[in-house]
Amino acid sequence: MNIPADFWEADPHGYQAKNYIEPPPTPEMIASVEAELGYTLPASYVQLMRTQNGGCPANTCHATSEATSWAEDHVAITGLSGIGREKTYGLCGELGSQFMIDEWGYPPLGIYFADCPSAGHDMVALDYRECGPQGEPCVVHVDQEGDYEVTWLAPDFATFIAQLQPEEAFQDDPAEVKAEELTLVQQAPFGPLLQTLCNAYPNPDLATGLRELAAAIVKKKGSFGLHGDELSSLMYDLQFLLCSHSRPVPSRETYLADDAYPSIIALSGGRFSTGGYAPGFVEDWWDEARRQGRIVETGEGLRFTPDAAQEVLDNVLGTVLEQGEG
């Protein structure tokens, strides 16, 4: 398999190193992972992981012949699992292949090796159903949102990798996308939880500030997506401020559970929404806020300190548009 020198995306903020990149795969580790999963990894998979053992490729999209919950003509991946069990997204890691089968109900058709921007609601897998555990598997997309519908992508892993394309190859006109996204964040109704949280907050201007912050993100990025940048971190701040005001937040795990953070903006059913999110960015934001002492334990659960809460309000209501357009 021909692997371009620039196949892997750069990792200036260490997100991949923290969550994906395992130590170089030894023969013993490869055998151990294969034994645990019950399948022989394709030689092309091992070859790729010898260049870097897991991480985010520069090209993240693969064409499809039919529509999925992600798009009409393609699927997107966030990262590729390394051969190991040390990192969260390793093949045998905390959120690895067997976890997705046991905890998320994915069909046991093989090895789930690539997560998607939907944060678990669709995955890409090596499908061994026809070739057997030691054979050469095809690559498929499995859509939890579509009752675990399986969509064929490529006859083997090497072909799948060769056919990955940049996101831009599937994008509409950037100006049209930006205009549509601005209309969405400025006019689309909030999801039920987000609306409830805004109604409960004593400052009625905060809902408008939230929309202005989302518009600033669109103006800066061309679309509404939350990542590890400054504006995204401010949105994470605002979401936590709203949530912790209305309900106790006993722990990070509770806040990031399916009935809390994902329902605020990231997965709000076609309303004001990013359409998905990468949980690692939110986890990193949380850990940094705790390290800085901005989020502290109180008698009403975890909350911002008064100074931190005021700073969030000042940033959202006072300077967000200048930040987004700068």
Rank of each mutant, 00 (worst) to 15 (best):
F113V: 01
D205A: 14
P248V: 02
V249F: 03
S251T: 14
C138V: 11
A17C: 04
P189N: 07
A214I: 04
G301E: 05
G280M: 01
P107Q: 05
A278H: 10
H74M: 07
G96E: 00
A71G: 06
V177C: 09
V282L: 10
Q16C: 03
E72C: 06
D11F: 04
D73G: 12
G135S: 08
G299Y: 08
P306Y: 14
V312D: 00
A214Y: 01
N59K: 12
M235E: 10
I111V: 15
G146Y: 10
P250E: 03
P202W: 07
T78Q: 06
V185Q: 04
C116S: 14
F160L: 03
L241K: 14
M29Y: 02
Q239S: 15
V185T: 04
S263G: 14
Q134T: 13
P57T: 08
A214W: 05
V177G: 07
I77G: 00
A162P: 07
V124A: 00
G326D: 09
S246A: 15
L126F: 08
S268H: 06
M49W: 01
G269A: 10
R211V: 12
A215D: 09
G293W: 08
I30Y: 02
M100F: 13
A125Y: 14
D143A: 04
V46L: 01
L184F: 08
C61L: 11
R290G: 00
E283P: 00
M100T: 11
D102I: 14
L242A: 06
N203L: 14
S44I: 06
S268D: 13
P23L: 09
L321A: 13
N53Y: 04
E9Q: 12
Q171L: 10
G324E: 02
F224G: 02
H121W: 09
A119E: 09
G270Y: 14
I83R: 00
A266I: 03
L48R: 12
L317Q: 05
R129C: 04
P12L: 00
A215C: 07
D143S: 10
P192I: 08
V320L: 07
S246F: 02
R50H: 13
S233A: 11
I111L: 09
L241R: 07
